[in-house]
């Protein structure tokens, strides 16, 4: 239901974050996340950063399988 794109936060100003997805840059709303800093990775959906990304999917896969 919801396309999400991981992107890196370049800068933050007035509740808007400039994000970069491998060279494609756009301003998105950062209002739904507390404590966002430049350098953080976020999941972007419909022009809004909906979550902070805390890991890459490879080590996530490792931890998910480790829990089984």
């Amino acid at each position: 239901m919801c396309v999400g794109l991981p992107a890196k936060v370049v800068s933050i100003k007035d509740g808007m974050a400039l994000v970069d997805a491998s060279g494609a840059k756009r301003e998105v709303s950062a209002e739904l996340l507390d404590e966002l800093d430049p350098g953080d990775y976020v999941m972007v959906h419909a022009g809004i950063a909906i979550a902070k990304i805390t890991d890459d999917d490879a080590s996530e896969a490792a931890s998910v399988m480790g829990e089984l």
Binding site: L5, S22, G23, A24
Partner: peptide, 13 residues
């Protein structure tokens, strides 16, 4: 695919 093209495509699906 140029990375920036891939990034734009990712944003817009």
């Amino acid at each position: 695919v140029d990375p920036a093209v891939a990034g734009v495509c990712g944003m817009l699906g």
